[in-house]
């Protein structure tokens, strides 16, 4: 499968998962919300089950394709710590992340999600551009 087709198919499954979760449970499959509520101990069984499923995903991929999906980490440890803190604080303050705003928010044509996606794409692009000195 070509990389782009594989990305499109993977994206389609992510969308299917998000909409199925809404149809079945009535809840938004926003990962920062699910993990945030799990950390707070709210609906621990439900949110915990989603996170366990999420961790099982790459294992199912490995069982089907015979190898782990590629994960290349280049960031240094201090950078990873700063990144984790910012992603944690930012996703809670901004009421969502790439999944809640990026997938379901855009699909629901929510103005808040459109503003959030435009903002995090802009600061993300700016950060990588400065980090890699691409300009």
């Amino acid at each position: 499968m070509s990389p782009y087709l594989q990305s499109l198919a993977g994206g389609g499954l992510i969308g299917l998962s998000a909409i199925l979760y809404l149809i079945l449970t009535g809840r938004i499959a926003g990962i920062s919300g699910i993990f945030g509520r799990l950390v707070q101990g709210s609906s621990a069984a439900l949110n915990g089950a989603f996170v366990v499923g999420l961790v099982l995903g790459p294992m199912i991929y490995r069982a089907g394709f015979g190898s782990w999906p590629v994960v290349t980490i280049t960031a240094s440890l201090p950078l990873v710590i700063v990144a984790g803190l910012l992603v944690g604080i930012g996703s809670r303050m901004g009421s969502g992340c790439t999944s809640g705003h990026g997938v379901l928010g855009l699909a629901r044509l929510s103005p808040r999600s459109m503003a959030a996606v435009a903002t995090f794409l802009a600061t993300g692009m700016l950060t990588v551009t400065l980090l890699r000195g691409s300009l």
Partner: peptide
């Protein structure tokens, strides 16, 4: 919403991780 998303984007760019992929790749 805007400030949070801006901080999220900086963190996303610094590490290349957002919450979903980070949790899923714990399995590796």
């Amino acid at each position: 919403l805007i400030l949070g998303s801006a901080l999220f984007g900086i963190g996303w760019g610094l590490g290349g991780f957002c919450p979903g992929p980070a949790l899923a790749s714990l399995s590796l």
